[in-house]
Design a protein around this nucleic acid. Structure first.
Lengths: 345, 345
DNA sequence: CATTAGCACTCCTCTCAAGTGAGTGCTAAC
DNA sequence: GTTAGCACTCACTTGAGAGGAGTGCTAATG
């Protein structure tokens, strides 16, 4: 079985046809749409070989053939031609991302939203894990008699705030003193240790002090656990209904349900590994069975060598890789550059 | 045409059957499922009358009949029996709502989320309009050299914060001075006027001052407009796909699209009126044509006589009113009580 | 010996007609 | 006024037949 050259050409033509129109491809279609200089019969023979090699699948004898996961894998790795991204588009991506740089989390969130708009597929982003971060400053601000706003600022510039309720009115300068005291005591503590330190160290130290702080600390502690949550941003989950393979109601719905469960998505994203470049997982290569007809493409955001977020796109296996991959690459590159420029210090 | 008593009984039986199983109801079904002591022929005669009166609709001659919007209206107003809410459930609603009282907005948001979980329908909440509120305190907190956190606290206890980027490092005590200055100048200003005051009054006053404040003000102003947005919280929009009437792909999708457009929902909620009790709009009673097969139930949250939020539930016209209405009532009552208890002062 | 034309064969899909059954509406009897 | 009986309607199911896209094999061709 030689003449691989021609086999690849035919496979490429089939994949190409299947991407633009997700229906089984027959030998005559290939002959008409792509001028390969051979007759349908020859193409049929090659197709038969390709099926034997596992690149094509026949839904039933008298249908055409569709590319297998293996074919898409080959296509992505070797056959595909990436489209160039127009300078104007590159620029527009850059500018969109610059729109809100207040927090790394926002940047990550917006990058996923942008990618979903650009591709009309479903995207996810996972926010930086605040746990690895350390506290820089804590500040208490009075809201009214019974409420106090707690603002935490971490070394990497992430801001978290929440309101706690205090039993009695605490004067503003009191709160300022407490803020200073807590900042002094807790600065440079990793966020995930805050709870422990507050409970076991500070509470004892404060035992004999007149500070009202003592009543506030348990409240602060309670809320801390929620804040540690890694946030997941999903965009365009409903686009799944546009996937050609998911015109079937129930299957689309079960996929949507899967996608809306935070723990699933977190798992999916965290297991995606940390390539330098984008990583592509096709069909059954995915860990989850619900994704067996989907392709997931992930990219990682890093800052000072640390992973600070991850971006994922989920679409049908027959997505237009040639245009989608450059887009996600471009978004990821822009984000990483912006991270360096604005957050590295 | 007398003997309304029996007509109502039959109508009630039909509605009841249609709620538990949304298919056209025939005369024999009624006879078998509900022992009314009359034969199918009699029931047929009554059904024929009911159709003439506009309470029943026949999809085609040889099908059974389904209740019209008018029938559901009658059912809701007069026939329906409300289920009692178990004390345990009431309590669990109460406790869920207490979970996060940091802001009125959170309470409103959580109430909608809870109701969606309880009913498995789609719910919306619209947050209090911050515009009517006045500023109480503004506070600038350094995040790092180039970023400053701005915290706004309003008279009604709503907290808004956002990060702005400053060109040069500003010392912490500088920021404190600015905070005090701005608070003094801006306290009691309605939120919606802040932009104007900052632009036209403060900028001039600061003309000759050494404060770095001047460079910060435009940034603050820029972000203010975004904050004024009334927020809308949607839950379980995808539950629409479970509605029996929306098994049709396209119609479900157009409804989902409608629901995901913020302006539509805002409009829908704001036009819902301000009943003391819940308000129910059935089928074509709704202003929007996409909702012609939906029922919307709304409730209003008030604080000191002012509307501070609104809750809406959207489901199929044949929803189980008897259990849904008590639920939304219960949630609304709990929220209003919590508002009084925790936010009235 | 690779390529190709020709042709029988497969199997999905569409259409159409007949059969089925749930349900109605009318009439006449109780 | 109520009900049994019956003809009638009409959606839905089923199965047969036609149509068509596509394959696989064979034999001819250069």
């Amino acid at each position: 079985m030689k003449n691989y050259e021609r086999k690849l050409m035919i496979l490429q033509a089939i994949i190409h046809s299947y991407i633009s129109n997700p229906e089984p491809v027959g030998s005559r279609t290939i002959q008409k749409k792509y001028d390969l200089g051979v007759s349908p019969a020859t193409i049929r023979n090659e197709m038969s070989d390709l099926e034997e090699l596992g690149f094509l699948i026949q839904p039933h004898t008298s249908a055409g053939r569709i590319p297998s996961d293996k074919a898409f894998r080959l296509y992505v790795d070797r056959l595909m031609e990436l489209q160039q991204i127009a300078f104007a588009q590159q620029r527009s991506i850059h500018n969109s991302l610059l729109h809100d740089l207040s927090e790394v989390e926002k940047l990550v969130e917006n990058s996923a939203k942008l990618l979903s708009q650009l591709t009309e597929y479903t995207t996810f982003a996972i926010s930086p894990k605040i746990e690895q971060d350390t506290l820089k400053r804590i500040r208490l601000i009075p809201v009214d008699k019974t409420k106090t706003l707690v603002v935490l600022i971490t070394t990497s510039g992430i801001v978290k705030d929440f309101i706690i309720r205090n039993e009695s009115d605490i004067a503003e300068n009191q709160l300022n003193l407490i803020s200073e005291f807590l900042t002094e005591k807790l600065a440079n503590t990793p966020i995930y240790q805050l709870g422990y330190i507050i409970d076991h160290v500070l509470m004892e130290e404060l035992e004999n002090m007149r500070f009202s702080a003592r009543s506030l600390l348990p409240m602060i502690n309670n809320t801390l656990s929620e804040i540690n949550d890694t946030k997941i941003f999903a965009n365009g989950v409903l686009n799944i209904f546009n996937f050609p393979e998911y015109q079937d109601f129930d299957r689309a719905q079960s996929l949507v349900k899967f996608m809306q469960t935070k723990s699933n998505v977190a798992d999916m994203l965290l297991n995606a590994g940390e390539d330098h470049d984008v990583r592509i997982t096709i069909g059954r290569e995915n860990l989850y069975d619900v994704l067996r007809e989907c392709t997931m493409i992930t990219a990682t955001y890093t800052l000072k060598g640390q992973t600070v977020g991850r971006l994922a796109l989920v679409g049908p296996t027959n997505m237009d890789y040639g245009s989608v991959i450059p887009l996600i690459r471009s978004v990821a590159r822009e984000v990483n550059e912006i991270l360096i420029e604005y957050y590295e210090t």
